[in-house]
Design a protein around this nucleic acid. Structure first.
Length: 465
RNA sequence: GGCUGGAUGGCAGAGUGGUUAUGCAGCGGACUGCAACUCCGCGAACGUCGGUUCGAUUCCGGCUCCAGCCUCCA
């Protein structure tokens, strides 16, 4: 199998990937802050790392995949207050919704999904170490801050010099800090907020520290891969490095991976810009596998510009796959051609999914040829191969007819029995060479959005999307 | 202002120092009673100005434009 190369944000180049423990990958990805429904930008990151994990496993690695949930945070408090619901009720509701969206998109659950509120002890322990080592201090307002200038490598991930940073240029600096660059590790509790006790008084964890604490406690002081969305490189991941390496004295992460942004009208889709579509909204009118295909059809680091048209095109591309699979029995068998090798070569090159899909389209052409020429054993073997490789991308795992007719069942304009009766009437007309009548019936069905497909085995119908 | 990453055919989107990406759409042909599906074939591209080179879309530099980060955001 081809040697795996991964682009590392830290070095800004592709590197041969070598896990710390041979055959075993330890990986952490920053997950959601659960105060609202996930949008397509979240889906992009979730799918990207889902494909990465699936491929690492297909490549032969055992993967320990950890993705956290941030379930305590300013936004959660604010939203719960607005909604007049408890923080627990809000976060439980959103976690349930997130899992639902993930299942719909074929995103496999991570092996562990730690939550900030369940790891407060680990968090306070890490903050304690940082204070003892002089990397953190309790300020007059009761907050605990990280002393950024104490950490020599600060800015390395982002190639930034602390002296050049214009902290506070756009945001008012909290005067309790020794230095504007310092960031909060522990927030002193306010009267009506949930809080935990700590050596520095009642309070709650800051955002960055939870990932340092949960990742190192789940995966060890040093682990293989840390991933996240494109907007987390600074400050979140920079701060994680500062916290973790200062606390443990060990290198934190070997390979940093960041997905590209999802854009709308050439602007990043984000909560703050308000230009987002939630996953569940999009799934109202689009098949989840089509959404997944759209996301996989671009390389994970490239920005994707989202527009409803791109989804329609994605559907037509997927239809080519499912049309090829339709009516062919997938059976393991000898296959001529080096599709698997080409597929793996593409994926081993920093998870090049567009190239991997191109290989699958080549395979589809060969499959259609075999099918057309009556080489059915070969067609069956190719179909099997197509499904096996497609599954690595989390695609092509359904029954073709189910996909081709998906999502419209409750909108069927006619009862299935009526459709079948019309098809039978048309075929009777065809047998009598009354093609005018046959075409009239076909047109009648077409007007209802039902497309016919004749073959030696008979006539089948599909819903036009 | 600093730091990233981009600019590829009608659209989407990989890649490469000299030779077909791939998909969608379009065009011609085949299959079909006609279609749909499918097959065969075709046209169509590398932002701009310089440099390196026998040769650059691919390497280097300038320019223009776009996006992201520098503030919570995936």
């Amino acid at each position: 199998m081809s040697e795996l190369q991964i682009y590392n944000t830290l070095t800004r180049r592709k590197e041969p990937f070598q896990p710390i423990e041979p055959g075993h990958v330890r990986m952490y990805v920053c997950g959601m802050t659960v105060y609202d429904y996930c949008h397509l930008g979240h889906a992009r990151v979730l799918v990207a790392f889902d494909v990465i994990v699936r491929y690492l496993r297909a490549h032969g690695y055992t993967v320990d995949y950890v993705r956290n949930i941030t379930d305590i945070d300013d936004k959660i408090l604010e939203r719960a207050r607005q909604n007049g619901e408890s923080i627990d009720a809000l976060t439980e509701r959103m976690i349930e919704a997130m899992h639902e969206d993930e299942r719909a998109l074929g995103i496999l659950p991570p092996d562990r999904e730690p939550r900030a509120t369940r790891h407060v002890d680990d968090i306070t322990a890490m903050i304690g170490v940082l204070i003892d080592k002089g990397y953190a201090y309790r300020a007059d307002n009761g907050d605990v801050y990280y002393r950024v200038r104490r950490f020599d490598h600060y800015g390395r991930l982002n190639n930034r010099d602390p002296d050049q940073m214009r902290a506070g240029a756009r945001v008012e600096v909290d005067t309790a800090k020794e230095d504007p660059l310092d960031f909060v590790l522990w927030k002193a509790a306010r009267a009506d907020e949930p809080s935990w006790s700590s050596p520095w008084g009642e309070g709650r964890p800051g955002w960055h520290i939870e990932c340092s604490a949960m990742s190192t406690c789940c995966l060890g002081d040093t682990f293989d891969i840390h991933g996240g969305g494109p907007d987390l490189t600074f400050p979140h991941h920079e701060n994680e490095i500062a916290q973790s390496e200062a606390a443990t004295g060990q290198p934190y992460v070997n390979t940093w991976m960041h997905a590209g942004a999802l854009r709308v009208n050439q602007e990043k889709m984000s909560k703050s810009l308000g230009n987002f579509f939630t996953i569940r909204d999009v799934l109202q009118s689009h098949d989840p596998e089509v959404v997944r295909y759209l996301l996989v059809a671009s390389h994970y680091r490239t920005p994707i510009n989202y527009a409803p048209d791109t989804l329609d095109e994605a559907r037509r591309s997927l239809e080519r796959f499912y049309n090829a699979l339709d009516g062919v029995e997938s059976v393991a068998g000898a296959v001529t051609g080096d599709w698997a090798a080409r597929f793996h070569a593409a994926m081993a090159d920093d998870f090049n999914t567009p190239e991997a899909l191109a290989v699958l389209f080549d395979l589809v052409r060969e499959l259609n040829r075999a099918q057309r020429e009556g080489r059915s054993a070969e067609a069956g073997a190719l179909a099997f191969e197509l499904r096996r490789l497609g599954a690595i991308l989390g695609l092509l795992e359904r029954e073709p007819a189910e996909f081709l007719n998906a999502g419209m069942a409750d909108e069927l304009p006619l009862a299935e029995s009526d459709i079948n009766a019309l098809i039978e009437a048309r075929n009777a007309a065809r047998r009598n060479r009354d093609f005018a009548e046959a075409d009239r019936i076909r047109d009648e069905l077409a007007e209802q959005g039902i497309v016919l497909k004749d073959s030696r085995e008979g006539t089948r119908w599909f819903i036009e999307h």
